[in-house]
Computed example of a mutant assay.
Amino acid sequence: MSSNTEIKKKPVSFSNILLGAGLNLAEVTTLGQPLEVVKTTMAANRSLTLPNAVKHVWSRGGFSGFYQGLIPWAWIEASTKGAVLLFVSAEAEYQFKRLGASPFVAGMGGGVSGGLVQSYLTMGFCTCMKTVEITRSKQAVTPGVPQQSSFQVFKSIYAKEGIRGINKGVNAVAIRQMTNWGSRFGFSRLAEDGIKKLTGKGEKDKLNAVEKIAASVVGGGLSAWNQPIEVIRVEMQSKTSDPNRPKKLGVGSAFSYIYKNNGLKGLYRGVAPRIGLGVWQTVFMVAFGDIFKKLLNTEGAGH
Protein backbone atom coordinates (compact mmCIF):
# COMPACT_ATOMS: atom_id res chain seq x y z
CA MET A 1 0.00 0.00 0.00
CA SER A 2 2.82 2.44 0.89
CA SER A 3 4.35 4.42 -1.93
CA ASN A 4 7.85 3.03 -1.23
CA THR A 5 6.73 -0.57 -1.77
CA GLU A 6 8.76 -1.54 -4.78
CA ILE A 7 7.18 -3.98 -7.21
CA LYS A 8 9.92 -6.31 -8.31
CA LYS A 9 9.81 -7.88 -11.74
CA LYS A 10 10.22 -11.63 -11.83
CA PRO A 11 13.35 -12.18 -13.92
CA VAL A 12 12.59 -14.05 -17.15
CA SER A 13 15.75 -15.83 -18.15
CA PHE A 14 16.66 -18.56 -20.60
CA SER A 15 16.53 -20.99 -17.67
CA ASN A 16 12.89 -19.96 -17.03
CA ILE A 17 11.99 -20.67 -20.67
CA LEU A 18 13.67 -24.09 -20.51
CA LEU A 19 11.90 -24.70 -17.19
CA GLY A 20 8.51 -23.96 -18.78
CA ALA A 21 9.19 -26.43 -21.58
CA GLY A 22 10.57 -29.07 -19.20
CA LEU A 23 7.65 -28.83 -16.76
CA ASN A 24 5.10 -29.11 -19.56
CA LEU A 25 6.84 -32.12 -21.11
CA ALA A 26 6.90 -33.84 -17.71
CA GLU A 27 3.22 -32.97 -17.09
CA VAL A 28 1.97 -34.29 -20.45
CA THR A 29 4.12 -37.46 -20.43
CA THR A 30 2.90 -38.50 -16.98
CA LEU A 31 -0.84 -38.12 -16.29
CA GLY A 32 -1.47 -35.24 -18.69
CA GLN A 33 -1.98 -37.10 -21.97
CA PRO A 34 -4.12 -39.98 -20.57
CA LEU A 35 -6.48 -37.40 -18.99
CA GLU A 36 -6.47 -35.39 -22.25
CA VAL A 37 -7.36 -38.53 -24.28
CA VAL A 38 -10.25 -39.51 -21.95
CA LYS A 39 -11.54 -35.91 -21.79
CA THR A 40 -11.40 -35.52 -25.60
CA THR A 41 -13.05 -38.91 -26.14
CA MET A 42 -15.96 -37.92 -23.88
CA ALA A 43 -16.27 -34.46 -25.47
CA ALA A 44 -16.35 -35.98 -28.99
CA ASN A 45 -18.62 -38.95 -28.08
CA ARG A 46 -21.07 -37.31 -25.71
CA SER A 47 -23.09 -40.47 -25.02
CA LEU A 48 -20.10 -42.08 -23.25
CA THR A 49 -19.84 -42.13 -19.45
CA LEU A 50 -16.38 -41.89 -17.82
CA PRO A 51 -15.99 -45.71 -17.39
CA ASN A 52 -17.21 -46.25 -21.00
CA ALA A 53 -14.74 -43.66 -22.29
CA VAL A 54 -11.87 -45.41 -20.46
CA LYS A 55 -12.98 -48.77 -22.01
CA HIS A 56 -13.26 -47.15 -25.45
CA VAL A 57 -9.72 -45.72 -25.20
CA TRP A 58 -8.36 -49.09 -24.00
CA SER A 59 -10.01 -50.82 -26.99
CA ARG A 60 -8.05 -48.53 -29.33
CA GLY A 61 -4.66 -49.89 -28.31
CA GLY A 62 -4.55 -50.91 -24.65
CA PHE A 63 -2.18 -48.85 -22.50
CA SER A 64 -0.74 -47.06 -25.55
CA GLY A 65 -4.29 -45.89 -26.44
CA PHE A 66 -4.04 -43.43 -23.53
CA TYR A 67 -0.97 -41.86 -25.14
CA GLN A 68 -2.43 -41.32 -28.61
CA GLY A 69 -1.26 -38.02 -30.06
CA LEU A 70 1.58 -37.72 -27.50
CA ILE A 71 4.34 -38.08 -30.11
CA PRO A 72 4.90 -35.75 -31.86
CA TRP A 73 1.94 -33.33 -31.35
CA ALA A 74 1.64 -33.21 -27.54
CA TRP A 75 5.44 -33.04 -27.21
CA ILE A 76 5.72 -30.22 -29.78
CA GLU A 77 2.89 -28.38 -28.02
CA ALA A 78 4.29 -28.96 -24.51
CA SER A 79 7.85 -27.93 -25.35
CA THR A 80 6.69 -24.62 -26.86
CA LYS A 81 3.53 -23.62 -24.98
CA GLY A 82 5.08 -23.93 -21.50
CA ALA A 83 7.93 -21.62 -22.45
CA VAL A 84 5.52 -19.08 -23.99
CA LEU A 85 3.17 -19.25 -20.98
CA LEU A 86 5.84 -18.62 -18.32
CA PHE A 87 7.57 -15.90 -20.35
CA VAL A 88 4.43 -13.91 -21.26
CA SER A 89 2.50 -14.43 -18.01
CA ALA A 90 5.47 -13.31 -15.84
CA GLU A 91 5.90 -10.12 -17.90
CA ALA A 92 2.14 -9.37 -17.99
CA GLU A 93 1.66 -10.08 -14.26
CA TYR A 94 4.46 -7.59 -13.46
CA GLN A 95 2.91 -4.91 -15.73
CA PHE A 96 -0.54 -5.36 -14.13
CA LYS A 97 1.01 -5.03 -10.64
CA ARG A 98 2.78 -1.84 -11.73
CA LEU A 99 -0.62 -0.46 -12.70
CA GLY A 100 -1.82 -1.13 -9.14
CA ALA A 101 -3.73 -4.40 -9.71
CA SER A 102 -4.25 -6.83 -6.81
CA PRO A 103 -2.42 -10.21 -6.89
CA PHE A 104 -5.69 -11.87 -8.03
CA VAL A 105 -6.25 -9.42 -10.93
CA ALA A 106 -2.54 -9.38 -11.87
CA GLY A 107 -2.42 -13.20 -11.80
CA MET A 108 -5.55 -13.40 -13.92
CA GLY A 109 -4.19 -10.79 -16.37
CA GLY A 110 -0.91 -12.66 -16.65
CA GLY A 111 -2.70 -15.95 -17.28
CA VAL A 112 -5.05 -14.46 -19.90
CA SER A 113 -2.11 -12.86 -21.75
CA GLY A 114 -0.01 -16.04 -21.64
CA GLY A 115 -2.95 -18.19 -22.77
CA LEU A 116 -3.79 -15.88 -25.68
CA VAL A 117 -0.23 -15.74 -27.03
CA GLN A 118 0.41 -19.49 -26.69
CA SER A 119 -2.83 -20.33 -28.56
CA TYR A 120 -1.98 -18.45 -31.74
CA LEU A 121 1.77 -19.13 -31.64
CA THR A 122 1.92 -22.85 -30.93
CA MET A 123 -1.30 -24.52 -29.86
CA GLY A 124 -3.73 -24.23 -32.78
CA PHE A 125 -2.30 -26.91 -35.02
CA CYS A 126 -1.07 -29.09 -32.12
CA THR A 127 -4.49 -29.37 -30.42
CA CYS A 128 -6.09 -29.93 -33.81
CA MET A 129 -3.74 -32.81 -34.66
CA LYS A 130 -4.05 -34.34 -31.16
CA THR A 131 -7.85 -34.31 -31.48
CA VAL A 132 -7.64 -35.78 -35.00
CA GLU A 133 -5.44 -38.61 -33.65
CA ILE A 134 -7.78 -39.32 -30.72
CA THR A 135 -11.03 -39.15 -32.73
CA ARG A 136 -10.16 -40.48 -36.20
CA SER A 137 -11.48 -43.91 -37.12
CA LYS A 138 -8.88 -46.61 -36.87
CA GLN A 139 -8.16 -48.25 -40.20
CA ALA A 140 -9.04 -51.91 -40.52
CA VAL A 141 -5.87 -53.97 -40.53
CA THR A 142 -5.62 -55.11 -44.15
CA PRO A 143 -2.62 -57.21 -45.23
CA GLY A 144 -0.30 -55.14 -47.40
CA VAL A 145 -2.05 -51.82 -46.62
CA PRO A 146 0.03 -49.66 -44.27
CA GLN A 147 -1.70 -47.75 -41.46
CA GLN A 148 -1.72 -44.00 -42.07
CA SER A 149 0.86 -42.37 -39.84
CA SER A 150 0.24 -39.18 -37.90
CA PHE A 151 2.34 -37.15 -40.38
CA GLN A 152 0.48 -38.63 -43.37
CA VAL A 153 -2.82 -37.52 -41.78
CA PHE A 154 -1.31 -34.06 -41.20
CA LYS A 155 -0.17 -33.86 -44.85
CA SER A 156 -3.56 -34.97 -46.21
CA ILE A 157 -5.42 -32.35 -44.10
CA TYR A 158 -2.93 -29.67 -45.24
CA ALA A 159 -3.29 -30.71 -48.91
CA LYS A 160 -7.11 -30.60 -48.68
CA GLU A 161 -7.71 -27.61 -46.40
CA GLY A 162 -4.40 -25.75 -46.14
CA ILE A 163 -3.27 -23.83 -43.06
CA ARG A 164 -6.89 -23.26 -41.97
CA GLY A 165 -7.49 -27.01 -41.87
CA ILE A 166 -4.61 -27.69 -39.48
CA ASN A 167 -5.50 -24.64 -37.40
CA LYS A 168 -9.19 -25.53 -37.20
CA GLY A 169 -10.73 -24.41 -33.92
CA VAL A 170 -7.86 -22.02 -33.07
CA ASN A 171 -10.28 -19.26 -31.96
CA ALA A 172 -11.97 -21.69 -29.56
CA VAL A 173 -8.49 -22.73 -28.36
CA ALA A 174 -7.65 -19.05 -27.71
CA ILE A 175 -10.89 -18.48 -25.72
CA ARG A 176 -10.21 -21.69 -23.79
CA GLN A 177 -6.57 -20.83 -23.00
CA MET A 178 -7.36 -17.25 -21.97
CA THR A 179 -10.11 -18.37 -19.60
CA ASN A 180 -8.08 -21.43 -18.51
CA TRP A 181 -4.91 -19.67 -17.44
CA GLY A 182 -6.70 -16.51 -16.33
CA SER A 183 -8.74 -18.72 -13.96
CA ARG A 184 -5.83 -20.93 -12.92
CA PHE A 185 -3.39 -18.13 -12.09
CA GLY A 186 -6.13 -15.89 -10.66
CA PHE A 187 -7.82 -18.54 -8.49
CA SER A 188 -4.43 -19.88 -7.40
CA ARG A 189 -3.33 -16.38 -6.26
CA LEU A 190 -6.71 -15.95 -4.50
CA ALA A 191 -6.24 -19.31 -2.76
CA GLU A 192 -2.69 -18.29 -1.77
CA ASP A 193 -4.10 -15.15 -0.09
CA GLY A 194 -6.70 -17.32 1.70
CA ILE A 195 -4.01 -19.76 2.90
CA LYS A 196 -1.91 -16.82 4.20
CA LYS A 197 -4.91 -15.53 6.20
CA LEU A 198 -5.65 -19.04 7.58
CA THR A 199 -2.03 -19.63 8.61
CA GLY A 200 -1.53 -16.11 9.98
CA LYS A 201 1.12 -15.19 7.41
CA GLY A 202 1.64 -11.62 6.29
CA GLU A 203 1.32 -10.35 2.71
CA LYS A 204 5.10 -10.53 2.16
CA ASP A 205 5.51 -14.01 3.71
CA LYS A 206 6.19 -16.90 1.37
CA LEU A 207 4.09 -20.07 1.18
CA ASN A 208 5.81 -23.41 1.59
CA ALA A 209 5.72 -26.06 -1.16
CA VAL A 210 2.66 -27.90 0.26
CA GLU A 211 0.69 -24.62 0.56
CA LYS A 212 1.68 -23.63 -3.02
CA ILE A 213 0.46 -27.00 -4.35
CA ALA A 214 -2.79 -26.74 -2.32
CA ALA A 215 -3.46 -23.30 -3.85
CA SER A 216 -2.77 -24.70 -7.32
CA VAL A 217 -5.18 -27.62 -6.78
CA VAL A 218 -7.92 -25.08 -5.97
CA GLY A 219 -7.01 -22.96 -9.02
CA GLY A 220 -6.86 -25.95 -11.36
CA GLY A 221 -10.13 -27.48 -10.18
CA LEU A 222 -12.11 -24.23 -10.37
CA SER A 223 -10.80 -23.49 -13.88
CA ALA A 224 -12.98 -26.29 -15.31
CA TRP A 225 -16.00 -23.91 -15.30
CA ASN A 226 -15.27 -23.22 -18.99
CA GLN A 227 -15.78 -26.85 -20.12
CA PRO A 228 -18.39 -25.84 -22.77
CA ILE A 229 -15.62 -23.97 -24.65
CA GLU A 230 -13.51 -27.14 -24.54
CA VAL A 231 -16.38 -29.31 -25.86
CA ILE A 232 -16.93 -26.78 -28.68
CA ARG A 233 -13.20 -26.85 -29.49
CA VAL A 234 -13.16 -30.66 -29.65
CA GLU A 235 -16.28 -30.71 -31.85
CA MET A 236 -14.68 -28.25 -34.29
CA GLN A 237 -11.52 -30.36 -34.55
CA SER A 238 -13.10 -33.83 -34.25
CA LYS A 239 -12.95 -36.48 -36.96
CA THR A 240 -15.91 -38.47 -35.58
CA SER A 241 -18.38 -38.93 -38.40
CA ASP A 242 -21.87 -37.48 -38.04
CA PRO A 243 -23.82 -36.74 -41.23
CA ASN A 244 -26.01 -34.23 -39.34
CA ARG A 245 -23.07 -32.08 -38.28
CA PRO A 246 -22.76 -28.79 -40.23
CA LYS A 247 -19.82 -28.88 -42.64
CA LYS A 248 -18.33 -25.51 -41.64
CA LEU A 249 -18.36 -25.14 -37.86
CA GLY A 250 -17.61 -21.84 -36.12
CA VAL A 251 -17.68 -21.34 -32.33
CA GLY A 252 -21.37 -20.25 -32.47
CA SER A 253 -22.62 -22.98 -34.83
CA ALA A 254 -20.73 -25.68 -32.88
CA PHE A 255 -22.40 -24.46 -29.66
CA SER A 256 -25.86 -24.60 -31.31
CA TYR A 257 -25.20 -28.07 -32.77
CA ILE A 258 -24.05 -29.53 -29.41
CA TYR A 259 -26.86 -27.87 -27.44
CA LYS A 260 -29.52 -29.03 -29.93
CA ASN A 261 -28.28 -32.64 -29.87
CA ASN A 262 -27.09 -33.09 -26.29
CA GLY A 263 -28.49 -30.20 -24.24
CA LEU A 264 -26.64 -28.47 -21.40
CA LYS A 265 -25.25 -31.81 -20.17
CA GLY A 266 -23.52 -32.30 -23.52
CA LEU A 267 -21.63 -29.02 -23.07
CA TYR A 268 -20.16 -30.34 -19.81
CA ARG A 269 -19.16 -33.79 -21.14
CA GLY A 270 -15.66 -34.75 -19.94
CA VAL A 271 -15.64 -32.27 -17.06
CA ALA A 272 -14.39 -34.89 -14.52
CA PRO A 273 -11.15 -35.77 -16.37
CA ARG A 274 -10.86 -32.05 -17.23
CA ILE A 275 -10.83 -31.15 -13.51
CA GLY A 276 -8.14 -33.80 -12.98
CA LEU A 277 -6.16 -32.40 -15.91
CA GLY A 278 -6.62 -28.80 -14.70
CA VAL A 279 -5.32 -29.72 -11.23
CA TRP A 280 -2.38 -31.69 -12.69
CA GLN A 281 -1.39 -28.92 -15.14
CA THR A 282 -1.75 -26.14 -12.58
CA VAL A 283 0.31 -27.96 -9.95
CA PHE A 284 3.08 -28.31 -12.55
CA MET A 285 2.91 -24.86 -14.14
CA VAL A 286 1.93 -22.62 -11.19
CA ALA A 287 3.21 -24.39 -8.04
CA PHE A 288 6.26 -26.20 -9.48
CA GLY A 289 6.84 -23.22 -11.81
CA ASP A 290 7.04 -20.82 -8.84
CA ILE A 291 9.10 -23.27 -6.73
CA PHE A 292 11.69 -23.98 -9.46
CA LYS A 293 11.82 -20.36 -10.66
CA LYS A 294 12.72 -19.33 -7.12
CA LEU A 295 15.43 -22.00 -6.94
CA LEU A 296 16.87 -21.06 -10.33
CA ASN A 297 16.75 -17.31 -9.68
CA THR A 298 18.18 -17.40 -6.17
CA GLU A 299 20.84 -19.98 -6.89
CA GLY A 300 21.80 -18.94 -10.39
CA ALA A 301 21.38 -15.18 -10.47
CA GLY A 302 23.89 -14.17 -7.81
CA HIS A 303 21.85 -11.01 -7.12
Rank of each mutant, 00 (worst) to 15 (best):
R98G: 05
G69V: 02
L121V: 11
L99M: 09
W75Y: 14
E77P: 07
W73C: 09
G65N: 04
S79V: 05
I76H: 10
P103T: 01
L99R: 08
L121A: 11
T142P: 08
G124W: 15
A44K: 01
S64T: 10
V141Y: 14
F63T: 03
L116P: 07
S102D: 01
A83C: 00
Q95P: 04
A92E: 09
E91F: 13
A44R: 02
A92F: 12
L121N: 04
S64C: 04
G110A: 07
V112P: 04
C126M: 13
A106Y: 08
S89D: 12
A53M: 01
F63H: 06
Q118R: 09
A43C: 04
K55E: 14
A90E: 13
C128N: 15
G82E: 11
A53C: 02
G109C: 09
K97D: 04
A74K: 12
R136N: 01
L116V: 08
H56G: 06
V117Q: 09
Y94F: 12
G111M: 11
T127F: 15
S137W: 12
G124F: 15
V141D: 15
V54D: 05
G100Y: 00
T135V: 02
E91S: 11
G114D: 09
W75V: 15
K138S: 14
H56Y: 11
A90Q: 14
Y120R: 11
T49M: 03
A101S: 05
T80A: 13
A90G: 11
G111R: 07
F104D: 07
A74P: 12
T80E: 08
A44P: 00
V132L: 06
L50I: 04
T127Q: 15
A43Y: 04
G65Y: 03
G62H: 00
T122A: 14
Q118K: 07
S89G: 10
S64Y: 11
S64G: 09
F96R: 05
Y67R: 06
G110L: 06
W75C: 14
A43R: 05
A44W: 05
E93P: 02
T127S: 13
K138E: 14
M42Q: 11
K130E: 15
R98N: 05
A140N: 13
Q118N: 10
A74S: 15
L85F: 11
L85A: 10
T122N: 12
S113Y: 09
G109L: 07
A53V: 00
S59H: 02
P103I: 02
K55W: 07
M123S: 14
K81Y: 13
L50M: 07
L48I: 00
K138I: 13
I71C: 13
L85P: 07
E77F: 09
R98T: 01
A83Q: 02
W58Q: 10
M129I: 00
G82K: 06
T80N: 09
T80G: 09
M123K: 12
S59G: 04
L85E: 12
T122I: 08
G100F: 01
K55T: 11
N45Q: 07
F63Y: 08
G124K: 13
T127P: 05
